[in-house]
Nucleic acid binder design. Structure first.
Lengths: 343, 343
DNA sequence: TATTAGCAGTCAAATAAATAGATTGCTAAA
DNA sequence: TTTAGCAATCTATTTATTTGACTGCTAATA
């Protein structure tokens, strides 16, 4: 239930959020009088600010300081006030240039989008491989690389390819490999990429004329391939050093802990992906370690295909408008390129 | 030319380095009197310390502070004084347990060694893939994954396998792939893993009956495969947060910059690998960004095969003795396992 | 000659006190 | 409903004061 704020309160809240994002200093009634859209005195603004504080949109570090947005304040800003096309011509130009780079496969694309995002926004980005569970297997190949080394390759309808190298203690024959290929293809092609277990596992075991140990190992490896799908990569970890927040040593520590335990973020990102772009402000991510950070995720869809998620992590005083604008623009450009058949 | 220190000076230097490593506080003459090996008064120690400072082994933060080792002091300590078997029974036990974990291929092994090293020493570790340039190609395979998708797999004598997926704008036939395989095998097997260029490139181009664009793309991809060999991975970035050095915000910033630009470290590591274990103290690494850090690298050989390098980064006040002891122990254990045929 | 006790001198770090400056909340008038 | 004006509040900055830890030197000692 988005509280109904009158127009002036909206303007004041917006101005406070934006000034605070820019300066990282509590915003005073005095500095808002400058704002040409607000035709009233500082006293009036003070009254309004008091009310905005009352209903929880603002808070005061201490009595004689200006106001700072609360999480609720940021939330209202993100939901109701922010501009989603807050990009300069120059920034658009830069983004276009960076996306020009040669793209080789979808993984590469995610990498380039991540770098671009980090460079333009000056925040740390995390990219998470797509959750492949709902992709469909279109082919499986086993390739003998040596007498005891087998390579398994799985292709999906989305163009994502996964492969794994499996080593055995005993020699494998070509016949065995053909047999393996036949059965696995038969049972898995057309199915979603899911862990092999239970009845399916038993069925495969029964069908193949090869040693149990070999098959167990293959299934184990294929399952590992699926599990490893949520790896997270961090880019631009040093981007935080220039932010005033980083002066507080505790924030710095928290930040290092967070980027070291990438799974924390991966977790947040994989939970409740309602929309294309999701914003978690401070404690909204429900993780103690992240209570002083905001995360914006970008469920990076290409013509409906999930090719991974990119997240940005920064202080709650994050430039949401810029971040979201950049994400939308990158997404738009990539989809245009995609339609043109660029990758 | 390692200066010739008399026995008492050596003992004093060693005691100072070790106390400073432990406490991170400048060491006073008073606290050294406790040392049961030194049977003299604080005044005598003060005289000795003054001399050690004279010849550059110690420095003073300010007049009324204790002494701190200089880079030269650490160097002397590392070269002449440190114990290389400074491990408790418990630590050995932990290392053995961690190395027990299932190992799958050599890459996996490097990963496990890295984790172990970070956990036991409480420093941040960086692992760098082996420099494959001097490995020999034993096989090359091209596998058609779709009509326009080709997978190239290169096997080397050291067991390292690299693969890459290549997409084309035109369809490929099985015949073409066979042709490709034949020529590439012919020209590359038995050769070291080096970039394809110059005469070799021309030769391949001339031999194959397939479109120039296709071959160019393949060569480009194979070359990329070789270049990407020095990727660096960081583990335990958060380990620094508890070190007193981290209280200085500048150190924290430097550290973040360093781990973000992993190549900096990779560079240092790839330069001048004289010995199995190399120690770079502060400015010895000749990189401005690293002047407050020490790096210990561990050129991780398995029965003569280079399977990658692992590095530890920490403050110059690093527990060199512990770090080197752990590295030696891990190396010994892995080689034992290897001889037993464990992987 | 090498060692040591003793003490003055030095400096950083901790504590305390004083000041300046920013901003609010409230009151009363417009 | 808005605004001017002013006291009250609290941080941040500056300055001063105290404390305590070491050293370096000197002169006595073994």
């Amino acid at each position: 239930m988005p509280e109904n704020l009158d127009n002036r309160k909206r303007k004041i809240l917006q101005a406070i959020v934006e000034e605070y994002i820019e300066t990282s200093e509590p915003v005073s009634s005095g500095s808002l009088v400058q704002n040409e859209e607000l035709h009233c005195s500082s006293a009036t603004i003070r009254n309004e600010m008091a009310e905005l504080e009352q209903i929880g949109f603002l808070e005061k570090p201490h009595t004689s300081a200006g106001r700072v947005p609360s999480e609720k304040g940021y939330r209202y800003y993100v939901d109701e006030l922010l501009r989603e096309d807050n990009l300069s011509r120059k920034e658009m130009e830069m983004i276009r240039e960076m996306l020009e780079a040669k793209v080789n496969g979808l993984e590469d694309l995610a990498r380039i989008a991540t770098t671009t995002l980090s460079e333009i926004t000056h925040y740390t980005t995390i990219s998470i491989e797509p959750n492949v569970n709902n992709h469909t297997i279109v082919d499986i190949k086993f390739i003998l690389l040596g007498t005891r080394v087998l390579m398994a390759v799985i292709l999906t309808d989305s163009g994502i390819i996964r492969e794994s190298i499996i080593k055995f203690d005993e020699d494998l024959t070509t016949d065995q490999v053909n047999d393996l290929t036949y059965v696995f293809k038969n049972k898995l092609v057309g199915k979603p990429l899911e862990k092999i277990e239970g009845p399916l596992e038993e069925y495969i075991m029964a069908e193949i004329n090869t040693g149990v140990k070999v098959i167990e190992k293959i299934i184990e490896e294929i399952n590992k391939l699926l599990e490893s799908s949520s790896k997270a990569y961090i880019e631009g970890a040093n981007k935080v050093v220039d932010m005033p927040e980083f002066k507080k040593i505790d924030m710095a520590k928290d930040f290092l802990n967070v980027i070291d335990a990438k799974d924390i973020i991966a977790d947040v990102i994989n939970t409740g992906m309602a929309k294309d772009i999701n914003v978690y402000i401070g404690s909204e991510s429900e993780r103690e370690e992240l209570k002083n950070f905001s995360i914006v995720t970008f469920n990076h869809l290409l013509d409906g295909k999930d090719i991974g998620t990119i997240g940005i992590i920064g202080p709650t005083r994050m430039d949401y408008s810029k971040v979201i604008s950049v994400m939308k623009y990158i997404s738009k450009k990539l989809n245009e390129d995609y339609k043109k058949g660029k990758f």
